[in-house]
């Protein structure tokens, strides 16, 4: 069946994406690792592994364990730091023609601001994603993402530190996800991505010890998709800014559910580990669905959920 070309581009808070398929931070390295499998310039955007002001060693091993339909990780935000990222990783990514979004985090509000400020002066970055939701580190991360006042403070501060479009990545660990979504919107966020991983654990019954050295870790993969989908739907209903759906997207059908629920774009995470070509497979699946359903523009599918 031949189809008319479909319009796939979306605008996420000032970032123009060729299509709605992005990578989830921490699952796609700095892009380079996946270049043999994916044309990096073919994706909507590449969100790189979270970057902090100084390099971080991360948590001791074991850091990963598979659970039913998912995986727990406790990497602990290991990264090379913003200076080495700019010097060593960014040039390759920029030359690949990819749309680059840099995920950032800090252990204090000032540190978030400092990282944002350094990247603000750097050529080739289309936007920042602020991680206020990592479940695996004590300082930073989730402390800012589980309290709407703290979230407001950190996003406001980063807003003043950069002119780049800001996406704020939310944690599912809140009583009311819409409250924190409104806070970051009021603080000047241009878009919201959700959800980060959900804290979980696994135990070895022979040794009676945790399977992760960090005891707990963040659950990702298909097991968390229904939770992510519900939260995206709730947030999209009450915010003015675009929402990016993340959580257990393994194929185009999963991605389409998020878009119908109100996501303007989606991020593919754990699926990259299993199928390095997952992003491009999902993109062509979305394209086929639009063609089959004679939808000329993806934007007309966003938030079309009918609950009647």
């Amino acid at each position: 069946m031949n189809h008319e070309p479909v319009e796939l581009s979306v605008n996420i808070g000032g970032i123009q994406l060729k299509n709605p398929v992005m990578t989830a931070s921490g699952t796609f390295g700095y892009g380079e690792e996946y270049a043999p499998y994916v044309g990096l310039d073919k994706l909507g955007a590449i969100v790189v592994k979270g970057i902090s002001l100084k390099p971080r060693t991360g948590n001791p091993p074991p850091r990963i364990v598979e659970t039913t339909g998912g995986m727990l990780n406790s990497i602990g935000l290991e990264n090379i730091g913003v200076d080495r990222f700019i010097g060593e990783k960014l040039p390759y990514l920029r030359d690949s023609g990819a749309t680059i979004i840099v995920n950032i985090f800090g252990s204090s509000i000032e540190e978030y601001g400092d990282v944002a400020n350094k990247l603000d002066d750097t050529h080739g970055i289309s936007g920042l994603e602020i991680n206020i939701s990592c479940p695996n580190v004590k300082e930073g991360g989730i402390i800012f993402g589980s309290d709407s006042h703290m979230a407001f403070e950190v996003v406001s501060f980063v807003r003043q530190s950069t002119k780049l479009p800001l996406i704020v990545k939310l944690s599912p660990h809140v009583t009311d996800i819409t409250e924190i979504a409104r806070s970051v919107q009021d603080a000047g966020a241009d878009a919201i991505s959700l959800i980060n991983t959900i804290r979980g654990m696994a135990i070895d019954i022979e040794t009676k010890t945790p399977k992760l050295a960090n005891i707990t870790g963040g659950l990702s993969g298909p097991a968390i998709k229904p939770i992510a989908l519900r939260m995206v739907w709730e947030v999209a209903k009450v915010t003015e800014i675009p929402v990016i759906g993340v959580g257990g997207i393994m194929n185009a059908y999963d991605a389409l559910e998020f878009i119908i629920a109100g996501a303007s774009a989606i991020q593919v995470g754990t699926a990259n580990f299993i199928n390095p070509k997952a992003t491009v497979d999902i993109l062509s699946g979305i394209e086929k669905y639009l063609g089959d359903h004679r939808i000329g523009d993806i934007k007309s599918l966003i938030g079309t959920l009918s609950c009647e």
Partner: peptide, 8 residues
Amino acid sequence: LGACLGCI
């Protein structure tokens, strides 16, 4: 692929 940082 060197992306997940699990096998350190």
